[in-house]
């Protein structure tokens, strides 16, 4: 499978890249990790005339805590989440998510910015970022703007990102000693998109959660926040019944469609089960940390 021809640009600064995007408009596509774009180009499902390769832009690959945020550069590779001890220790949800994305070679190149920018509800980071209450920093002709994650995913492959904007950073509120999380993904085999997956991040206050974030992967046109489940749990003592009810609400609030991965009914059930399992793990982790 061979992609159609294109013109290739390698801007060495962010402003240069944005200028190219402005100049070429719809004809241009951003190439970062390339692991969503290049397969689509090989099947000729996408045939952009211009490719703006942003990999040469410096200083967009980092993971650091700063100003109350965990900041992840837009070009940070998935593998960095696996390899950074601080992520594994303080943000197990991010670690659990990263290791379930595709396979090791893909994670060596694929970027977190790209995973989010693609706007694919089947990708894993979108739900994770919902659970974490992240913010997306997009840089465009008018400089930086910060988009709350709840405002970011607008539809199938459709995000709040302007065609002239590049995701330069993802910001996640710094986790404290009372918070933890996990990602439970059901997949047909390694490397598959999720049949359904559930991201959970909790912050404990005594025996009950002060904050709960739940994001659902690949059970709707966009990643879905299980809002009613979150609200149900906040401030309540954790009981099996409550967790079960949270799972049930999540299964009601998702919008899966039947495909090779299962029926709508099956996927709703998986969402319920995984939500419960993820909540249990997250609570256990948060309470033991």
């Amino acid at each position: 499978m061979i992609p159609a021809a294109f013109e290739y640009f390698t801007p060495s600064t962010l402003s240069e890249a944005i200028a190219l995007l402005e100049e070429h408009g719809d004809e241009a596509k951003i190439l970062s990790g390339g692991h969503s774009l290049i397969p689509m180009m090989r099947y000729r499902l996408a045939s952009p005339e211009k490719i703006v390769d942003i990999n040469g832009i410096p200083d967009l690959e980092y993971i650091k805590e700063e100003d109350g945020y965990l900041k992840i550069g837009g070009l940070t590779r998935e593998v960095a989440l696996e390899d950074t001890p601080m992520i594994r220790e303080k943000y197990p949800l991010l670690y659990d998510t990263a290791v379930m994305i595709a396979d090791p070679q893909v994670r060596n190149l694929a970027t977190i910015g790209g995973n989010i920018a693609h706007g694919d509800a089947a990708n894993d980071h979108p739900a994770t970022m919902l659970a974490l209450g992240a913010e997306v920093v997009a840089t465009g002709p008018n400089g930086e703007r910060v988009i709350p994650i709840d405002d970011f995913f607008l539809g199938l492959y459709y995000t709040a990102l302007e065609p002239t904007e590049i995701i330069t950073e993802i910001r996640i509120p710094v986790a404290d000693g009372n918070s933890s999380g996990t990602y439970k993904k059901m997949e047909r085999k390694v490397g598959d998109y999720a049949t359904a997956a559930v991201a959970v991040q909790v912050t404990m206050n005594g025996s009950g959660p002060a904050k709960v974030g739940i994001g659902l992967t690949n059970v709707g046109p966009t990643p879905i926040r299980a809002k009613r489940s979150e609200e149900l749990l906040v401030g309540q003592p954790i009981t099996d019944e409550l967790i079960k009810e949270a799972g049930k609400l999540a299964s009601e609030d998702c919008a899966p469609t039947a495909d090779l991965r299962g029926s709508e009914e099956y996927k709703r059930s998986v969402v319920s089960v995984l939500t419960q399992r993820a909540l249990k793990t997250a609570f256990e982790r948060a309470l033991s940390s």
């Binding site: 390339g34 290049i38 397969p39 090989r42 593998v79 070679q105 893909v106 060596n108």
Partner: peptide, 27 residues
């Protein structure tokens, strides 16, 4: 394969394993 699935094209780039079917030579 043509879907970045099989890994037969794996090589090392600066010491990291990558699938060389999912990268352009210009990169």
């Amino acid at each position: 394969c043509d879907s970045t699935s099989c890994g037969a094209c794996t090589i090392l780039m600066d010491g990291k394993s990558i699938k060389s079917c999912t990268m352009f030579a210009v990169q």
